[in-house]
Amino acid sequence: MWRFLGETMAVFAKDMRCEFRTRVAFNSLALFAVTTLAAVSYTIGPYGIAEADRPYLLGALLWIVVFFAAMAGLDRSFVKEEETHTAPLLRLAARPLVVWGGKLLFNTVTLALLMAILVPLYVVLMGLSVRTPGWFILVLAAGCLALAVTTTIVAAIVARAMSRGALFAVLSVPLLLPLLVFLIQGTRAAIEGRVPDVLAALRAVVSLGGVMTVASAFLFPVVWHD
């Protein structure tokens, strides 16, 4: 168990170190997020939506911005290994689950960093007031994890195919659609302060994320080795 964690951390640390030296994934994620945020804020702003629709629409818009940013950069971790031909070495040296774990950790941290910057900006720019901030953050955190799990396995698949950039979005959308629906409902409920509805949405997000995690852990070795 400790060995497994140590090896996973080695993959994660390597990815972080490479990423900090080039910043390809970080930059494309951040740029995409900032651009969409600016567009949304410019066209809609804090007063563009009727009061009654605010919680729902602002929740939906927030997740759309996060989703697009995720599509722009979260496939890098795997695609880069294939493009620079470092994947075969990793395949020879490491256990498949260790690779999956390391990449999952990397994607989670990347997305969490992005959201830590993006969400406060969004709240300020859109004049969003949240009734239950604790639950709001919990929904965001659960969403971050579930998004990272799903995009990690899709990125692993896409890296083994051609025309990767387009394929990443095409394959991700169907798998992420139910998740985004739950997250938008949960976010809306947290903004409106309806705790039971937040709990219902969180349960759905956690179970979907859990199912995805288990399925990915089983299927990743197939994706990685074929």
Partner: peptide, 25 residues
């Protein structure tokens, strides 16, 4: 996905993985 993988074995395996992931959601 099937169209984007030329190698037949890999195509079959990746498509199967995707079908299973889609099914569980």
């Amino acid at each position: 996905l099937r169209g984007a993988v030329p190698d037949p074995e890999r195509k079959a395996a990746l498509a199967a993985v995707y079908a299973i992931l889609a099914f569980v959601t």
